[in-house]
């Protein structure tokens, strides 16, 4: 093989506060796993193998959010060992669904959930990786789309910009030939303010978008939420609809606060 003689870039996959679903998307690339293993040296990927190799790493994929002091220190070490750092998934990009605690007193949650709250040492907020260290590229999604993940890895290996559009989910709807669920059936849909990447999964099933891929570039939150209200969604419904997987992404967070009484 042409690749056997060249030095393969070292890949590391890191986990912070998360469900592991984004890492699983990498393992779910079954048809490409052998090619990936051939193209990169999988140096650190505990979800896949116990064998680890020391840094520095050429490409680090970081999953999960920062919710405790230990992780806040660990991400600094990861950054220092990584030439390129890509945050993958809603947790790593904006704090994930666990960022719901940012809107309340996190100690109330600890008291409600744990028999011995004094064992728990946690930060008051869940935040994305870019709030702590510089991030070279954000790959969106809850979970990330495995084809987009493969595109990011391929682009990194070729030294080119990944083809990851920042446009609205609407663009994927129209490419697939799906009639707009808001216009054709009055269904509130976050598609117009949400970044593409899922392939319009929910509108393709007649449902409104839940915003898994976070805000698109220049989202007009205020006017889409005004449209939601005119379609009959309550203020609480609007707020809660924005507080899902990307609750702490700035445009979603700020708009949800405007609908919080």
């Amino acid at each position: 093989m042409a690749t056997s003689t060249r030095k393969r870039p070292k890949l590391a996959v890191w986990k912070f506060s998360s469900c592991d679903g984004c890492q699983l998307q990498l393992l779910d690339l079954e048809d490409h796993l052998l090619d990936i293993a051939d193209a990169v040296d999988i140096a650190y990927f505990l979800e896949a193998t116990r064998a680890t190799a020391r840094g520095p790493y050429d490409l680090s994929l970081v999953e999960g959010s920062i919710t405790n002091r230990h992780d806040a220190e660990r991400i600094q070490k990861v950054r220092r060992q990584s030439k390129v750092l890509v945050s993958i998934g809603a947790c790593a990009n904006s704090g994930g669904i666990q960022a719901l605690k940012n809107f309340a007193d996190h100690k109330d949650f600890i008291r409600a959930v744990y028999a011995r709250p004094d064992y728990i040492d946690t930060l008051a907020t869940s935040t994305g990786i870019a709030d702590h260290v510089p991030v070279d590229f954000e790959l969106r999604g809850c979970p990330v789309d495995r084809h987009q993940l493969l595109e990011v890895v391929s682009a990194f290996l070729a030294g080119r910009k990944p083809n990851i559009p920042r446009t609205a989910v609407c663009t994927e709807c129209k490419r697939r030939g799906i009639a707009c669920v808001t216009v054709a059936s009055g269904t509130p849909c976050l598609g117009p303010v949400t970044q593409a990447g899922c392939g319009a999964l929910c509108p393709g099933c007649g449902r409104g978008c839940y915003g898994c891929f976070g805000p698109k570039e220049t989202p007009n939150m205020a006017n889409l939420m005004a449209e939601f209200a005119s379609l009959g969604r309550s203020e609480t419904g609007i707020r809660d609809g924005l507080r899902l997987f990307n609750a702490n992404a700035a445009p979603f967070r700020e708009e949800s606060l405007r609908h919080d009484d």
Binding site: C170, T171, R175, C180, P192, T218, N220
Partner: peptide, 12 residues
């Protein structure tokens, strides 16, 4: 102020 810049008009 009203436009969502979603691109639906151009795609349609």
């Amino acid at each position: 102020d009203r436009c969502l810049s979603c691109g639906n008009c151009t795609n349609q």
